Computed example of a mutant assay.
Amino acid sequence: MFRRLRRIEKRVLRIGATKSIGDSVLDGFLERYLKHEDHNLSLLVANTTELLALLETARLDFIVVEGLFEKKKYDVRLMQRERFVGLCAKGHPFEGKTIAFEDLRQQNLFVRESGSGTRNIFERELESHGYDLSLFNRVTVLSSFQPLKKLVSKGLGISFVYQSIAHSDENLGRFTVENMVDEHEFSIIWLKNTTASQFVDAFFKKEGSCEIPDKISILSKL
Score class of each variant (00 low, 15 high):
85 V>T: 12
89 A>M: 05
133 L>C: 13
120 N>F: 00
97 K>A: 13
115 G>F: 00
98 T>R: 12
162 Y>G: 10
105 R>G: 05
172 L>P: 00
89 A>R: 12
92 H>D: 10
144 S>W: 05
162 Y>I: 08
111 V>F: 02
95 E>L: 09
98 T>C: 12
86 G>S: 09
109 L>F: 15
87 L>A: 03
102 E>A: 14
108 N>L: 03
165 I>D: 01
165 I>M: 14
125 E>P: 03
91 G>P: 02
90 K>M: 07
149 K>N: 08
119 R>L: 05
99 I>T: 06
169 D>S: 07
135 L>A: 10
113 E>I: 12
135 L>I: 04
131 Y>R: 10
150 K>W: 15
111 V>R: 08
98 T>H: 00
99 I>K: 13
106 Q>T: 09
115 G>I: 03
137 N>D: 11
96 G>M: 07
148 L>R: 07
126 L>M: 12
163 Q>F: 00
103 D>R: 14
153 S>Y: 03
166 A>I: 02
146 Q>P: 11
152 V>Y: 10
129 H>L: 09
94 F>S: 07
152 V>N: 02
96 G>P: 06
124 R>L: 09
104 L>Q: 05
122 F>H: 02
104 L>G: 06
172 L>E: 04
153 S>V: 02
155 G>V: 03
132 D>E: 11
84 F>R: 01
122 F>Y: 01
146 Q>Y: 15
99 I>D: 12
86 G>V: 07
123 E>I: 01
122 F>M: 13
152 V>W: 07
126 L>F: 00
98 T>S: 12
147 P>D: 10
162 Y>D: 04
139 V>I: 01
107 Q>R: 12
138 R>V: 01
102 E>C: 11
133 L>G: 13
161 V>N: 08
125 E>Q: 15
151 L>V: 09
149 K>E: 02
86 G>Y: 13
129 H>Q: 11
110 F>I: 02
100 A>V: 05
164 S>V: 05
158 I>S: 09
154 K>N: 14
94 F>R: 07
128 S>A: 15
127 E>C: 14
142 L>P: 01
155 G>Q: 07
89 A>N: 13
144 S>V: 06
112 R>Q: 15
98 T>D: 06
100 A>E: 12
116 S>F: 00
172 L>S: 02
122 F>D: 02
154 K>F: 08
144 S>H: 15
162 Y>K: 13
87 L>T: 05
104 L>D: 01
109 L>T: 06
84 F>G: 06
86 G>C: 08
99 I>W: 02
147 P>T: 11
102 E>S: 15
167 H>S: 03
107 Q>P: 13
135 L>E: 08
143 S>I: 05
118 T>L: 07
116 S>A: 15
103 D>T: 03
103 D>Y: 03
84 F>K: 02
111 V>C: 08
154 K>I: 00
94 F>L: 11
142 L>I: 09
141 V>T: 15
107 Q>G: 04
136 F>Q: 01
118 T>D: 14
135 L>D: 02
112 R>A: 14
99 I>M: 08
167 H>E: 03
153 S>R: 10
